[in-house]
Nucleic acid binder design. Structure first.
Lengths: 250, 250
DNA sequence: ACCTGAACACCGTTCAAGT
DNA sequence: ACCTGAACACCGTTCAAGT
């Protein structure tokens, strides 16, 4: 109750960089990336906007920090896996890598705005680099040359962290300020209606939609299971890398 | 010279949606996406900012339109390929798809900001849908079931249009307002210096960098050939799809 | 050392007014 | 019908001032 500091606990009013970043993550999780402004973050903390500049250099630095918080979460979750055993057989690299990537994905799914911010960074967090280092380690123990490891990282791209660019996804998770969930089916309907109108221009697309969607007309564009599709694409790449690694070893 | 309209040519002052969008593309190509504001676009056209709202509904609509211009360029370039022959052998789908995707990529490389805008759209251009329809047609003629076609589109993701998310790319092509090219090597140096400092924390990363970069110390992070790496990842996916398609046909 | 308020230079956009 | 200028509600950020 008193404003003075009790032994062992920091004063509740002590604003630190860590507390600023934590608040920013909470705000982005709740209201979306568009709602994360210096002014709204300050309001969240019960503070004036300009006070933030004592703990972050500017907004870019804030976003760097906010990525670092999520990256720490990823590394923490991945570190709890037992994927880094040194005595594992060579073939262990594939399931281990798969688990690390899907674990990172699970963290990113809790912070839907994070992948957008991650992409926009030019510098990268130590936690992210260490995550990649562990992937490299797995591939090395799997017998990959560094050349193949390098190609593999490019081939995976953002999939190495557990996300991928979906071009036809009307869920609008990351971008924008409108966080309402009710518009989702409306967007699907509008997209479907648009496709119907251009039916003769895109015959294969229409036929595919008709054949794929079996559970009623309202699920024409919403049928995709993101997790299944992610794993499908991931496994194609992992299998391809597996074949190349085996070829390297004559 | 006169302000009156000569037969057959539109008056020079006639501002149309098409001219607005063309100007927006030119501006983004030249100064980057960050420089594309309603006010700067108006200045480019020698007009007042508010006049733009007679030809585009708002900024979102402007971005929709600007994507459509690039999408038309893609469809035009792809249409000039002879990849849609109906009498081609089944195995033709793979080289045909490869050519279409690399052709789309070539267009997008001329508009480095376009992939970012493309990603951010919730609705999609007719030209883009028709581009995808032609990819679907190729796979169908290659013997794919619609189910496999659907998985294939997810597996390719943005690669279907010729770009991919590169997480460790310090070239900053798409984002930001700083279009200067001189800072590139500086960013590489800074990144390398940072990695050296954390050498014992990321041993595999350091070793990979040492082994991969043979042409001098200044090319530590700049050695990647984007085109080569894109094709490497693309071919892994196409080969994987090929195997799955063959398996489908018993 | 840390926090504040006013102010500046930008955004996208609304509105009432011009021709 | 098309274009305009002033104005509004936002941004990120600078600066001089408070404690």
């Amino acid at each position: 109750m008193t404003s003075s500091q009790t032994a062992g606990t920091a004063p509740r009013s002590a604003l630190t960089r860590a507390r600023v970043l934590e608040s920013a993550v909470v705000l982005a999780d709740r209201d979306g990336l568009g709602a994360l402004t210096m002014r709204s973050l300050a309001r969240e903390l019960g503070i004036e906007a300009m006070s933030l500049y004592h703990h972050v250099a500017n907004k870019e630095d804030l976003l760097d920090g906010v990525v670092d918080v999520v990256a720490a979460e990823i590394q923490d979750a991945v570190g709890r896996l037992d994927t880094q055993a040194d005595d594992a057989p060579k073939s262990a690299w594939k399931p281990a890598m798969r688990r690390q990537i899907l674990t990172s994905r699970a963290v990113l799914l809790r912070h839907p705005w994070a992948s957008t911010v991650l992409e926009s960074r030019t510098s990268f967090s130590l936690h992210i680099v260490r995550y990649f280092d562990s992937l490299i380690g797995l591939m090395r123990r799997g017998g990959f040359s560094y050349d193949l490891v390098h190609h593999a990282l490019h081939a995976l791209g953002s999939r190495a962290l557990g996300f991928s660019q979906e071009l036809f996804e009307p869920d609008g998770a990351a971008a924008g300020s409108a966080a309402g969930g009710g518009a989702e089916e409306g967007a699907d309907d509008a997209a479907t209606a648009m496709l119907m109108q251009m039916a003769e221009q895109v015959p294969h697309m229409i036929e595919m939609l008709a054949e794929i969607s079996h559970e009623g007309p309202e699920s024409t564009l919403g049928w995709c299971d993101d997790q299944t599709e992610f794993e499908f694409g991931l496994d194609i790449i992992l299998d391809g890398l597996d074949r190349l690694a085996e070829r390297e070893q004559h």
